[in-house]
Nucleic acid binder design. Structure first.
Lengths: 330, 330
DNA sequence: GCGCTTAGTGGTAACGTTTCCACAAAAATT
DNA sequence: AATTTTTGTGGAAACGTTACCACTAAGCGC
């Protein structure tokens, strides 16, 4: 029923191989190429990508597995990845794991069945440990989260540096009792915690880090509990944009003013962080660059499979706003 | 190199057809089924989806074409669609058009080439007009935007009602000079404009609607220009969540207080709309429902291709906040 | 004018599945 | 006991492409 390459060949008066060549690469006379194009238009032929993929063994598909596309960081990175992919004539299959290792495993086998050309993956720590075991038969680039050794191509933020920048910023504004709220399931959370603790220690300050499950609600609850304590910190360092909404909400609910009662510094420069008074101090991640760079690494890996593994570490930009205004001198 | 169904058959000591049946439906003795499963485990066999799709003529793939996944409305709807799809054993191909009809056309042919099982699409007005012409050979469900007649299955918000609700709300709070800012490229913008104008007229008030290109920046510029006018409106009705950031930013830049100098009411109940003082009054769209319902319509259409077209119109919920606080009586 | 490359074309065998058909054996029905 | 139905299995033909090979005709260097 649906028209195939054979029909086009018949209409154009040439062989199927010639049609195939005319549509793709290969030596075809200008005359025949036009006949074929005319036949394609006349018949309304649309190549069947499943057949093409099966025969050519090239799926032109890249997988993208992230925690949750609703996390603004992944939204932006995902969009950048998709743009780069479509520009290169590739499709993207997007999967949301909600940081659930079982779903990560599920989607990994899906990627195998799809025979993806490559994979861009933001794994949980649990999966990261298990990743070396089951050898994938396509290249993989990790984003946002890094394995221990340089096993895989990776592109991520310099998380320790970024945390340290925030700590330094807070300390320079007079804050000393600074708490930190981090995502429990990612290496990112751990790295940001480490950077935070190291920077605090370097200043001779004691830090307190708390880990929470990766949702705004969990962050809100954790922040509310923390801020209700009589010896609550003066400032909170918040590990991502999702958490930020929860923390600000908790502060509002408790009637705490920012920054007078509680200062806030976090990650991810979402548009709204500028709009919520008095503006939130954040580390801006180069999200487009991360997505684009991940695709670049992937393409390079495909071209030179045996090249040494590369880790692209990008610096965040600190955007200082009112949420970390200087403490009044005592 | 990569193991195929033939290898599994050899290892299991049965024919390929038996393996195929054992893996899918079909009568297979329990004994043989186990042998096959053992062989699958032993060989590490992963079915090749391209081959399966080609042979079975079922791609189990649904297309999702939206303006921009970074628009929080589409982010949420997209996530709901993906969840429903994966639950049903289907994959999703996501495309961002940036409201560009050329890219819409491009992606539509891509969907044809992919032989998608069905399509969920938020088209621009331009494409909507052209849509009936080129018959697609798969069912399509429109989201967020509706065609003129009931040509296609559709799920969207009751936009006129929602706009009217906001107008009523504003009027009841004492506002009379209310402007409206709408997206230029979608029927959604038009419908919300119509609802706004109708509600204004019903109250004996003159409305002024302005259309802007679909980006936060464009909204910011338009709002800034409008609010700089000496006879600026008392309140602004803002057509979507992307625009809201722009409008609030413009107000801040101009030093206008919300709601004293300019009241704001909009669409999309994003977490941050609660946090930006004094809280933004918005229409909350049932985003998960929209995504899920779109998939439901699609599946029903697949089951009964000739059933009459259906249009699911959902009501928004008005969340009143400080940005539309009552005007002091004069 | 002779070999030699090259451009252009057609025939056909894959790619890895599913599905149809045939058939035997077992089970159910008469 | 004879027939019919069901269950389980294998063989082989698709699905719609691309890629390999063979071949002709034309161009080129000498």
């Amino acid at each position: 029923m649906t028209v195939n390459i054979k029909d086009v060949a018949r209409v154009a008066g040439v062989s199927v191989s010639t049609v195939s060549r005319a549509l793709g690469e290969g030596p075809v006379s200008a005359e025949v190429r036009e006949q074929v194009q005319a036949a394609v238009r006349a018949t309304g032929y649309k190549p069947n990508l499943s057949a093409r993929r099966l025969r050519s063994q090239r799926t032109q598909t890249i997988g993208l597995i992230v925690a949750d596309i609703r996390n603004p960081f992944f939204t932006a990175v995902g969009r950048a990845v998709e743009d780069a992919a479509y520009r290169a004539g590739m499709r993207v299959i997007l999967c949301n794991t909600d940081e659930d290792p079982a779903r990560e495993a599920l989607y990994l086998t899906l990627m195998q069945e799809e025979r993806v050309t490559g994979l861009i993956f933001a794994p949980t720590r649990a999966t990261l440990d298990r990743l070396q075991a089951d050898a994938l038969d396509f290249p993989m680039v990790l984003i946002d989260r890094a394995g221990p050794g340089g096993q895989f191509d990776t592109v991520l933020l310099d998380n320790r540096e970024a945390s340290a920048t925030l700590v330094d910023h807070l300390v320079s504004r007079g804050y000393t009792r600074i708490g930190g709220l981090f995502g429990a399931t990612s290496t990112t959370g751990v790295e940001r915690r480490d950077g935070y603790l190291a920077a605090m220690a370097a200043r001779g300050l004691a830090g307190e880090a708390r880990f929470v499950p990766p949702s705004a609600e969990a962050a809100e609850n954790a922040a509310a509990a923390w801020l209700r304590q009589p010896d609550r910190p003066q400032a909170l360092l918040v590990s991502n944009g999702l958490f930020l909404t929860g923390v600000v909400k908790a502060a509002r609910t408790l009637g705490l003013r920012i920054p007078q009662d509680i200062a806030v510094a976090g990650f991810d420069n979402e548009p709204w962080t500028e709009l919520v008074e008095p503006g939130l101090t954040v580390i801006e991640q180069p999200v487009e660059t991360i997505g684009r760079e991940a695709m670049t690494l992937l393409f390079q890996r495909l071209r030179t499979p045996d090249a040494p593994t590369r880790k692209v570490v990008l610096s965040g930009r600190c955007v200082a706003r009112g949420s970390t205004a200087a403490l009044p001198r005592t």
